[in-house]
Computed example of a mutant assay.
Amino acid sequence: MTVLKAFVVPGESAERVALPAGGAFSLLADASDTAGALGANRLTLGAGRDGATLHYHARSTELFYVLDGALDFVLGEERVTLTKGGLVVVPPHLPHAFGAAPGTGADLLAVLTPGVDRYGYFRQLGRIQHGLEPFDSLLPEQERYDVHFVDASGGQ
């Protein structure tokens, strides 16, 4: 008989990847933690800061839940601003981007399902945001992390 066990992450134990302007990724669950079911992270952005350049996921659906503040989303051809309590579900292959709305910060929960091991991706993004690596260093990793950039220059 298989013994089932929940995956639990106390808030204070999540790895934190610092971003400029007081932002951070909190790495909550990677695919390897959930038998591939999902990956989850919390993202805090400073006022008006970009969260992600235009990209899509070929294999996964992504859910965003706004915990606080306001987020501007690009969802294909649509532009939407969501505030606390707002939810977006992005299907595979839909190009999307997001960032904190001008003049406000944002705090969001992001869940990718099925999961992809992406902790390395978030760590690399942190180094890029701090100017320690070029954006182009992510380009060879697009398939591995299921993050496919629409503009290969990453808008950087």
Rank of each mutant, 00 (worst) to 15 (best):
Y121R: 04
L27S: 05
G115V: 07
F98C: 04
A100R: 02
G103H: 05
R59G: 02
V80S: 05
E12M: 09
L75S: 02
P20Y: 13
T113C: 09
S13N: 14
L19G: 06
Q156M: 13
A106M: 03
R79D: 04
D68H: 04
G11N: 14
P10E: 15
D146E: 10
D72T: 08
A24R: 11
A35C: 06
F25I: 12
P102K: 09
P10S: 11
Y121M: 11
Y119V: 01
A110P: 00
S60K: 06
F73P: 00
L112Y: 10
V66T: 04
L82R: 05
P102C: 04
D117G: 00
A97W: 07
A31T: 08
P20C: 10
T61Y: 00
D50I: 09
A101D: 08
P10R: 14
V8L: 15
Y121E: 03
V147P: 00
A14V: 10
G22K: 06
G120F: 13
G103Q: 11
F7P: 00
L94V: 14
T61F: 05
P134N: 05
P102F: 10
D107E: 14
F149D: 01
A35E: 13
R127Q: 13
D68R: 06
Y145Q: 09
P95K: 07
D68Y: 06
T113Q: 10
Q124T: 15
A37H: 14
S13Q: 15
R16Q: 15
Q142N: 09
T81V: 08
G22R: 11
H148R: 13
H96R: 12
G46M: 07
E62T: 00
L63N: 03
A70W: 01
G154I: 14
V89Y: 03
D151I: 07
L132Q: 15
H96S: 07
R42S: 12
V89W: 03
L27K: 07
S13R: 15
Y121I: 05
L94N: 03
A58R: 15
G103R: 04
L4A: 13
R127M: 03
G76F: 01
G51L: 06
T44G: 09
F64P: 04
H130M: 03
L109N: 05
T81C: 01
S60F: 09
A52H: 12
L125G: 02
A47K: 08
A21V: 04
V111Q: 05
G85R: 10
H57W: 11
P95L: 11
L125H: 06
H96L: 04
V8Y: 15
I128R: 07
L125E: 03
P102G: 07
T81M: 00
H148G: 01
L71Q: 03
Q142P: 02
A18Y: 06
P102E: 13
F25S: 08
F135T: 06
A47F: 08
D151T: 08
G131A: 12
E141R: 12
L132W: 02
Y65F: 14
A97G: 14
F122V: 01
Q156S: 07
R118W: 05
F64L: 07
G155A: 13
T113Y: 14
S60Q: 12
A97D: 05
R59T: 07
D68I: 00
A47L: 11
R144L: 13
L108G: 04
P102S: 11
T44N: 02
T2H: 14
L139H: 07
N41A: 08
G48M: 02
A31H: 12
D30Y: 09
D146P: 10
N41E: 02
L75C: 00
